[in-house]
Design a protein around this nucleic acid. Structure first.
Lengths: 257, 257
DNA sequence: ACTAATTTGTTCGTATGTATG
DNA sequence: ACATACATACGAACAAATTAG
């Protein structure tokens, strides 16, 4: 075997398990572990830490749904539902997961100021914000409209990017080196205005799911977004469990109807 | 001190941490720990188990939001948001949390059969189901309509109960000894039909949040429910975090607007 | 302002049980 | 039956944050 033995910095203020988690996430993104995942004892040997520490790491990957593991079985990746944020909904992911091509019509990308949005982002009211306005398509049909505001100084690298496809979060990670680590979402229902109806190709008054999200990278608010989704084409599915089982008591995902 | 030392059954097939968790939940319901909560080492002494085992228990109580703890601070109960299910939304809880009186108009409680609902509950299609039809009021205004189906043989104790107030889950726990441990929810948006509009006192076509829930106690499906909530009075708020912090990466709650 | 006590956080080590293949 | 892999449980030690005095 002679696994390459991955070293951790024991003098770092960052816990071993956190370093390990970072490293494993990188390897996951790089596509090591093609569907399989190392066992706990393998990780013990590979990183030279105790099993308790390994379990601290694996617990988190399991809670996210990234890794599936059970007694006796060989641990494997959860390819079914990819969760780039490990958490709630990514329109891009769910469209692709439904076997449809995701595409966006970028209606505008501009720098502007908005006191209301700045307030939600907990920034000074005159902060320049990058405002990205898109209509999201699933297959050939419009599915949602989406307006995202990001602090211009952090999101500047997105200005030249092709945002006509793909998850905004992936673009953010690739180009700006920003990874969201948390968010607060507000879900509600509305009905389509005449303008919204035209954009989404539904009749005025049609039910829409409204999703407002404040995304954070650590403590720093990174994004405020409002998405209006056609309710006839999407539902949100969540599940949770207080089961005493080993699988963490949480697991959120979303499905297309 | 001489704490009364609570004994666990080491020959039981149930893990020590699960027994401990059950016991602590009972004590929580009974109202021991008035706002405070025992420290890990206290629990070690009290239950005669190792600290690892205690942490296994406390981790779950923290993930639910029941217990708040942090280095140095004395652990305390989270009285802010009560989460009887530890998880997603309870209309009753959120109305009360908003400082309003929750009340229900019970429109009908009847035993009937429904092949469609039975299928969702994974029961034979001719299973008798207790069907509870309510209009939920917050303060004096209607807020939601709610129809729940439960297997009649499990929910029979509810037949004589006064369901005009309180969480259905509490009634279930008190009278039928059933505690939900997991659920799957489907969220969507709709618009009010004429009938629904009359019941909810909104105009026809008004936006409604539709919440369908399949509730489970262990493996056993216990409830299928559909709730239609006035979108002008309620939004769902969720938050999550992949933070490396000790507090689990999950925490769902809901707030009234 | 400082110290001591308390409490959780992290990490190590070890051992045994149980489910799967 | 056997190996693998997670589940549970014990023990111990030190670090870091907070609070009490």
């Amino acid at each position: 075997m002679a696994e390459p033995r991955r070293d951790l910095d024991r003098s770092s203020p960052m816990p071993l398990w956190a370093q390990m988690l970072d490293d494993l996430r990188k390897r996951l993104e790089a596509g090591d572990f093609d569907d399989s995942f190392p066992s706990e004892l393998t990780l013990v040997a590979e990183y030279g830490v105790s099993r308790n520490t390994v379990r601290e790491v694996v617990r988190r990957l399991r809670a996210e749904g990234t890794v599936l593991a059970a007694r006796g079985k060989r641990p494997r990746l959860n390819r079914a539902i990819r969760q780039p944020l490990g958490a709630f909904y990514s329109l891009y992911e769910s469209i692709e997961a439904a076997g449809l091509r995701e595409r966006s019509v970028v209606r505008s990308v501009a720098v502007r100021k908005s006191a209301a949005v700045s307030r939600r982002l907990q920034l000074p009211s005159d902060t320049p914000l990058l405002c990205i306005d898109r209509v999201r398509l699933a297959g050939d049909e419009p599915l949602a409209t989406d307006r995202a505001y990001l602090p211009e100084d952090r999101a500047r690298p997105l200005l030249g990017a092709d945002l006509s496809s793909g998850s905004l979060y992936e673009h953010l990670a690739e180009r700006a080196g920003l990874r969201l680590t948390g968010a607060e979402e507000t879900l509600s229902a509305t009905t389509a205005t005449a303008l919204q109806a035209r954009e989404l190709e539904v009749v005025p008054g049609a039910p829409l799911l409204s999703i407002e999200r404040l995304g954070r990278a650590g403590k720093e608010p990174i994004e405020w977004r409002r998405t209006l989704v056609r309710a006839d084409r999407f539902v949100l599915v969540t599940q949770f469990s207080l089961e005493q089982g080993p699988e963490g008591p949480y697991s959120l995902h979303l499905t297309r109807t």
